[in-house]
Design a binder for these strands. Sequence first.
DNA 1: TTGTTACTGTGATTATTATCACTTACACCC
DNA 2: GGGTGTAAGTGATAATAATCACAGTAACAA
Lengths: 224, 224
Amino acid sequence: MDSMIRQFYEIPGKVVALKAGEYLFREGDHAKYFYFVRSGQIFITKFAESGRVLSLRLATRGSIIGELPLYEENPVYIFNALAQSPSEVYAIEFPTLHSYLEKKPSLAINLLKIIGMHMRKQHSKFRDLVLYGKKGAIYSTLIRFANSYGREVDGGILITVPLTNQELANYSATARESLNRMLGDLRRQNVIDIRDGLIFIRDINFLKREIQCEDCGREICNIE
Amino acid sequence: MDSMIRQFYEIPGKVVALKAGEYLFREGDHAKYFYFVRSGQIFITKFAESGRVLSLRLATRGSIIGELPLYEENPVYIFNALAQSPSEVYAIEFPTLHSYLEKKPSLAINLLKIIGMHMRKQHSKFRDLVLYGKKGAIYSTLIRFANSYGREVDGGILITVPLTNQELANYSATARESLNRMLGDLRRQNVIDIRDGLIFIRDINFLKREIQCEDCGREICNIE
DNA sequence: TTGTTACTGTGATTATTATCACTTACACCC
DNA sequence: GGGTGTAAGTGATAATAATCACAGTAACAA
């Protein structure tokens, strides 16, 4: 993945630093830049009128952000990008990226590969949610976080990102209370555990089995 | 859209004719070709272990198909492609497409545009389903079919594709009975009507209002 | 120490959606 | 014109998930 990103560094752009809790952009903003993340973590979310928040990704080093309106006549961001921790992103203006994509086919092809991967992530998430309901959404979110931010310890996987129940619920489009109950069940079944506020997955295969995981690999099944 | 597709005709490939009910490929098949549709209509679906079917698109003239595994090391189709009516597709081998993409940046850029559009479709569908439940899924499906296959008549929109309740339910990941009840309600509210087995939408704005449609335009909000 | 705040955990209730078990309607074919 | 098959429609019930209304907890500041 990093090898695909390296090319983008050669394109003129600027580095933007974000504090935790700071927005890089909000949905509806005029879109001027394509970004990729150099360091830190960035929530990609969408708001509903009702006040609910839908979380889609937690972008990290190497992730691209804000690519969707790249070729639109009146480009507007459709998501919010909010720094979860202090972060640095590299910002490339759309017209600059356009001209580099035209000049360097290998760059366009790399972007195609990256976007194709995003497409597959999105599809697999859709499938999990749609076919296995909230359980599918939640288990799938846990697996994705484990793949992106998990560290193997004590025969299990510790998700190294601190997430509140509400934040996790936003990723699975679930009510906080429902998520809480499901986590409670998983805890009682010894599938997961909470360690200093972080989720520790004892038995990730249980989660995979329950949602008939197609084992699409870490390149696809992640939250980045 | 058609202008973006025209370029692909210049790439060597072959025409494949399909009868109604014939599969172009199935999920799990080794993926060798990238396709685009010349004529007819092709269902893009995915099976669940449980026997349920999830319908994703109804591809038509100008749609691309089977592009997802384009850059994979061991390419496998992840969906089924089933001709709904007699159809013709143009098939380009992946390696051939690769070399043309490398040679012609404008082709790669066009593919980027198309895939970016697919991404947005997918996101908006996800949003509808996740934020407004089955009602969101069903209303959104009706709007998409209206945008892709609707003909304006008598101050309303006639969806010119014959769809059974089961097929519509597959698009919205709903039980047939649930879909049937919802359509019944819409009929009673004079929002839709059935004309010779086709759905006639009297008041599409009702559907749009109910799911807080973001009016993303026909380029995005379709089923192709 | 005591508020304050944000988060977690839970019971009770309601709303939504699926499932099961049918009946009805309609097209098509000998 | 009766028989067959497929799809539509519907009631009853069960399963799933959201909502409301709190009680408990932990961290932190004054």
